[in-house]
Design a protein around this nucleic acid. Structure first.
Lengths: 245, 245
DNA sequence: ACAATTAAACGTCATATAAACATTAACTAC
DNA sequence: GTAGTTAATGTTTATATGACGTTTAATTGT
């Protein structure tokens, strides 16, 4: 039997992934589709974030984890609860009202928004009925509810955080090249970085471990692979501080 | 007449202020006191954060602003919604249960936590029935609910944020000395900073405006007063970025 | 076998920033 | 005018950054 939900509290999840080929930061979205019963007119056809109501006896964090597992099959993802969206009128545009009617909810809903960082290649989205699809964060489709706002605020937070926390590694495979790391930074921050200076800077970091391995199957000089050591990072930065304003 | 509240959603506010005399980062807390009707036995006597339930037709941000205005008489304070606390068992210790019974609430309550930065000297806490009182964040009294956790998480966020955002000025008077600024940094971060290096670094910042004014009424060399220019800061940092990990 | 192609990897100089450290200056109180 | 107190300043060395060009190691096509 289904446990009871808390009707006025939900969780919405912005799932970020990096596509190394297109060098694009993407967001995973679900199709929201509804047609009328009489004449099969399309009433709603847009995209939304994945989310669900919190269950009684479940923490908010657990709700988010559960929703992500159902969507991606993955656990232990980087997860950040970044903001609450609770405007009384946040679900009041035309299509949202139609949708709400069909789904039988009309209470004021407050949503707790998370963002997740995933390694795109690990996500299995084929087995999901809602046809999840990746979209570039800079080129989003039509979105339901206030989800465009939620995505943009998540992106702003991610940008800021990537400057002073080593979270960008969550978007890369376990083994990556310096160039790939630079690509992610450039993409997320929307800047160009000099490859020589970037490389020099990053190579001085103890938490970047050089592996005994190189890229294979590329038609050029294969590049050195690295991994990120969380342990080393935490040891180094436990006691350090740096006022950078 | 009283507008309706949303019973399972509340806002809690951590109010931070800096005491220049004791060089201490303080938190404003309210007395929570309850005695039994029969024999006047003291049932609950500890401290809690200020907070209240969200009203229907009120945004969460408005709830926080309202609560703070009622407590301090102030508007336009620096406000940060930093985390949601929604553990189903978060109000389950003995005194909280007694208190909940007396106040007639027993629903699972999810609280959206904010922290505020205030200029201590501007806060008027005399006219409040709950006897608000400042406590050093490093020496807190017994606290009700999960408010100790909330304060500590707020403090962690404040520490991190102070390194890359100019929020520390919210804790100082409009006119301040470099030494006072250093005191706040040292206090919040829990570190000692070399005064010569700190001064040199800060004096290069365009957003610190040197005033035509010095301290008066001090029995020593009076120090130069400065102000922080938000305008200048925003112009400078709009397009800059700095990977500092 | 060899040249062309491609991106990786390395190097240098000038400038800016950071850490470590001691002394002088300006005011008040008596 | 002297003592007390804190503000304000200066120098040296090491490290980090920004702006540039060149060499190297692999594949591909002939």
């Amino acid at each position: 039997m289904m446990p009871k939900i808390i009707p006025n509290i939900s969780v919405d999840c912005v799932v970020f992934g990096f596509d190394a080929n297109t060098k694009s930061l993407n967001v995973l979205l679900l199709d929201r589709y509804l047609e009328s019963e009489e004449n099969h007119e399309v009433l709603v056809n847009d995209y939304v974030l994945t989310g669900y109501h919190t269950l009684e006896n479940e923490t908010i964090d657990d709700t988010a984890t559960r929703v992500l597992r159902e969507l991606t099959g993955l656990d232990n993802l980087y997860k950040k609860q970044f903001k609450v969206f609770g405007d009384p009128n946040r679900l009041m545009n035309e299509k949202d009202v139609i949708w709400a009617k069909s789904e039988n909810f009309n209470e004021r809903t407050i949503t707790i928004a998370y963002y997740f960082l995933v390694k795109t290649h690990e996500v299995d989205i084929e087995n999901n009925q809602h046809k999840p699809k990746w979209f570039p964060v800079n080129d989003l489709p039509e979105l339901g509810f206030d989800h465009k706002t939620i995505i943009n605020e998540a992106y702003t937070d991610l940008k800021a955080k990537s400057l002073y926390q080593p979270i960008i590694f969550e978007l890369l495979p376990d083994k990556f090249t310096i160039k790939e790391l630079q690509d992610v930074y450039e993409c997320i921050l929307g800047v160009e970085i000099d490859n020589r200076n970037f490389r020099r800077k990053l190579l001085t970091k103890k938490y970047l471990i050089e592996l005994d391995e190189k890229q294979v199957g590329v038609s050029k000089k294969p590049s050195q692979l690295f991994m990120f050591s969380k342990d080393v990072y935490q040891k180094i930065y436990k006691e350090s501080y740096l006022i950078s304003i």
